[in-house]
């Protein structure tokens, strides 16, 4: 069981959260021509890193906010969390 620090509510049990995937993916610019390959990459292709990974989590049974988490995919250690409009240091 992970113990995750929500930037709004503080430390809470993993039971209150939902995992939201890779937190570094950027949506292609609006109103730009984009190839099928690029769109496919944005929608489907994800890295599966071993080690530190920035991911999105949703405090779904809490404040209902999305936020970023830097977690080690091997040890599950959580190094830091931040609001989505803030950069992880």
């Amino acid at each position: 069981m992970l113990y995750i620090k929500c930037p709004y509510c503080g430390h809470r049990s993993q039971k209150e959260f939902a995992y939201g995937g890779d937190g570094t993916i950027k949506r292609p610019e609006l109103n730009q021509e984009i190839s099928d390959a690029k769109w496919n990459e944005f929608v489907y292709l994800r890295k599966s890193p071993r080690g530190k990974h920035i991911e999105l989590w949703h405090h779904i049974a809490g404040c209902r906010q999305w936020f970023k988490v830097q977690r080690d995919t091997v040890t599950h250690e959580i190094f830091q969390t931040s609001k989505t409009n803030e950069e992880l240091k």
């Binding site: 509510c9 049990s13 049974a61 209902r64």
Partner: peptide, 20 residues
């Protein structure tokens, strides 16, 4: 409920889960 309820006092509130 997974909250650390002993840390909450009068005038606090929290969203959480109870048996899911």
């Amino acid at each position: 409920c997974p909250l650390d309820v002993n840390t909450f006092k009068e005038g606090d509130c929290a969203n959480s889960v109870y048996n899911g």
